[in-house]
Structure formats: C-alpha cells, structure tokens
Amino acid sequence: MLDVRYPIGFLFLILGALLAIYGYGHPATFNTVNGPFPLNIDVPWGIFMFLFGMGTVSLAKLDEVKKAEQEPASAAAAIEPEAPSSTSKTEPTGQEES
C-alpha cells in the first residue's frame, strides 16, 4: 500500500524548488508596516516547502527502514511458536494420505 507521505513529500520538493529558483531570478518587494521589504515571497516560501517535502519523505523512509528491520524479527517470532505444531502436521493422518 502506498505511503501517502511519499507523494506529498515529492510534490512539495518539486514545487518548493520551482518557487525558490523562480523567485531568486525575479526579485520583488512588498510593503509592510515598516515600509517596502525587498524580498520575493517565492524564495522563503519555496525553501520552506522544499524543507517540508524533505522532512515528509524522510519520515516515510524512516518508517520503511524500521519496518524492514522489524520484519525479520517478527517473522522469526512467528515461526518459533509454530514449530511444534508444524512438526505435528508432518505426522501423516488418514485424511492427508487420502
């Protein structure tokens, strides 16, 4: 099953990079209470979105690694208790033979 954090993360990585790069090449100002502010909102917001995307993908990746680490352990734990019953299953019964 798809981890939704991957599409979210990659979407914001791409959009963030797009905005930051475009904004860097197109300087602008906007007026604040203290007068004009020489910053194009594209740049900080693009960087913020890019970092958010990185964080989201990293979290998804971290969970994937954790799951992969747990899987051998849980598989081993699942096999252990079943060992006696699987042995007993090897004993032939009339039904199996038929």
């Binding site: 959009l15 797009l18 905005l19 475009y22 904004g23 197109h26 602008a28 906007f30 194009n40 909102i41 594209d42 917001w45 693009g46």
Partner: peptide, 10 residues
C-alpha cells in the same frame, strides 16, 4: 493583488 508569479500559481 499581493502574490508575485510563482506564489500566484501556488
């Protein structure tokens, strides 16, 4: 009125 291009698209 307030967004520049790029942010406007977003």
């Amino acid at each position: 009125a307030v967004y520049p291009n790029g942010m406007f698209g977003l």
